[in-house]
């Protein structure tokens, strides 16, 4: 996954080009959005404490995700949230060892998450609704022996 240039499409039809070492910042060129009115937002993701090694060894990523996502029973849409982002990261960014980052729906205990420098515990954790240009930092605090 870290070396191919294939466009991986998500269910919303948006693509993400996984980067190779030549491109320090991964950019996304979304193809034509399938349904009218669907926007995307830009999120900057940073990894600290060595966590970037699980994500193609890149400490910094800029990605685009849909602004709205379907809600649980698919009846309407809701703003995109951290829960979606984590799942998205697991399918699209994580290059190794899923169990070292994720734990069920959330992140593994011992990983600190900061949203725009603030503790995500104060922002609602997985329920936090993302906005355009938010900066999310994931820092691993585990020693691993």
């Amino acid at each position: 996954m870290s070396t191919s240039d294939d466009i991986i499409t998500t269910s919303n039809g948006l693509g993400y080009t996984s980067s190779s070492a030549a491109h320090p910042e991964s950019l996304v060129k979304p193809p034509q959005a399938p349904s009218a009115g669907e926007d995307t937002i830009e999120i900057k993701i940073e990894f600290g404490g060595g966590l970037h090694l699980l994500f193609s060894s890149q400490p910094s990523h800029k990605i685009h995700i849909p602004r709205n996502i379907p809600n649980d029973d698919n009846t309407a849409t809701q703003p995109v949230n951290m829960r979606y982002l984590v799942k998205w990261m697991k399918s699209n960014l994580l290059s190794e060892r899923e169990e070292m980052f994720g734990d069920g729906d959330g992140v593994r205990p011992g990983i600190l998450v900061l949203i725009n420098d603030a503790d995500w515990e104060l922002e609602g954790e997985l329920e936090y609704e993302l906005r355009d240009r938010d900066e999310i930092v994931f820092i691993s605090t585990l020693h691993g022996g």
Binding site: G48, G49, P59, I139, G144, G145
Partner: peptide
Amino acid sequence: LNGLVRNARNWDN
């Protein structure tokens, strides 16, 4: 200092 920090000692390996 995030870029400088490496928490994983990896002594298990």
